[in-house]
Design a protein around this nucleic acid. Structure first.
Length: 370
RNA sequence: UGGGGUAUCGCCAAGCGGUAAGGCACGGGACUUUGACUCCCGCAUCGUAGGUUCAAAUCCUGCUACCCCAG
């Protein structure tokens, strides 16, 4: 009988994933991962409650369960990089790394040691074998599709992965959970950095990053406020600037981080032209199915997401050496260095890359024409 | 020092005798497996002390603060 380890978070999705596999008559083992050992702002270790939910669900559907700890791996492979990016003034996405390094590497290896053939999770994505190779497809529930977070996986990782709820909608998943009386059927979806959870992000970062106060200035150089350290802000951000009353009365947004002068450049209006860009240089491209889908130099058409849950954007991508030049048909708002741009061809998730540099929408040369 | 002006929520700002608009900021919530964005809700008795009036932020007087002009 095929043995499958299910990564269980204590949420509805992974609980239902385990349930479905069990009902298929497979040899299912539930495993809870603990990768972050710290109390939240209220001094409560939320992972404890999640672990209890996992146990309750596993007992109910009658599968064995374990907990593993990858705190060390998470620190070394995800969190250290996360902090180093912030120190450089960039805005990383720790969860895409977490999937590549922890869930589908360290944890996958652990599952294999338990004698598993496959590793299942509650992600809303689907896989398929095309021409003998596994590919990643969007989840059936467009509103919940999580392929954005899994674009860094490689074929070898995907090969071992199973996504039991990927073909369902969130509503269906909850229905199934209710039908079977799972105690987590109405549990709120978790958000926040994976394993670290929801918390005041600025306060959280302050535990790890130095504060280096400086000025907030307009493009013209007029000082309109003070910041606590450029690491604490990200392009397009509105909340937390604390500027009110001056200028034309509209809201202020972060336009740019001037690391050299430790100045946060801000501007007014959610439609400020400096907030938009069409050309992006992205690095560290990773492709799920083997190599790049386009030939070097070729202008390749596909769609892309510059952030999770963004509607598909039509883009032209060109591979130049080890970097990618991405031109969007429509100007994109607040594309951010350190974040990921993920590519799709229809339902197929091709892979993605890390935004390195952004060229402003107006008055810049066409990257793809060079 | 003389003359003039202004004082309304953290900031900007309506109100001009009838019982405090709005924007920004901020707080809370929603949304969300990153960070952001977005949406919803909340948020002042009017510098101070008196007076006039049925009724004052709105009129009068004193005080205080700030600004401008003069010198």
């Amino acid at each position: 009988m095929e043995r499958i380890v299910v990564g269980m978070s204590g949420g509805v999705d992974s609980s239902v994933a385990a349930l479905l596999l069990k009902r298929q008559g497979l040899d299912v083992i539930g495993v809870f991962m603990k990768n972050w050992d710290e109390k939240d702002e209220n001094g409560v270790c939320t992972s404890t409650a999640d672990w209890e939910d996992v146990q309750a669900v596993c007992r109910l559907i009658d599968i064995p369960f374990y907990a593993v700890n990858f705190e060390k791996e998470y620190q070394e492979r995800v969190f250290s990089h996360f902090l180093s990016e912030y120190r450089k003034g960039r805005t990383p996405n720790p969860d895409v790394l977490c999937n590549r390094e922890i869930k589908f590497k360290a944890f996958l290896e652990f599952a294999m040691k338990l004698g598993a053939d496959k590793l299942a999770t509650g992600h809303f994505v689907q896989t398929e074998i095309r021409e003998g190779h596994p590919v990643l497809l969007r989840g059936a529930d467009a509103k919940k599709d999580q392929s954005y977070f899994l674009y860094m996986l490689k074929e070898q990782q995907l090969q071992k992965a199973v996504f039991p709820v990927g073909a369902m909608t969130k509503a269906q998943v909850r229905d199934i959970a209710r039908e079977h009386g799972l105690p987590v059927s109405d549990k709120k979806d978790s958000t926040g950095v994976c394993f670290i959870g929801e918390r005041n992000f600025r306060n959280f970062l302050q535990n790890y990053l130095p504060t280096q106060p400086g000025d907030m200035r307009t493009e013209a150089g007029e000082k309109v406020g003070e910041h606590i350290g450029l690491s604490y802000y990200t392009p397009g951000q509105r909340k937390g600037l604390g500027i009110g009353g001056c200028g034309d009365g509209r809201s202020w947004f972060v336009l740019e981080k001037d690391l050299k002068n430790n100045v946060l450049v801000v501007g007014q209006g959610e439609d400020h032209p400096r907030l938009f860009s069409s050309h992006v240089e992205a690095v560290e491209p990773t492709w799920i199915a083997g190599g790049a889908p386009m030939a070097a130099g070729e202008a390749y058409r596909c769609t892309a997401k510059y952030r999770y849950r963004q509607a598909d954007q039509q883009v032209t991508v060109r591979l130049e050496g080890d970097r990618l030049l991405v031109e969007a048909d429509e100007p994109q708002r607040a594309v951010t260095p350190g974040q990921s741009v993920v590519f799709y061809q229809g339902e197929l998730c091709l892979g993605g890359a890390i935004v390195e540099a952004v060229e402003q929408y107006q008055g810049k040369p066409d990257l793809l024409q060079r």
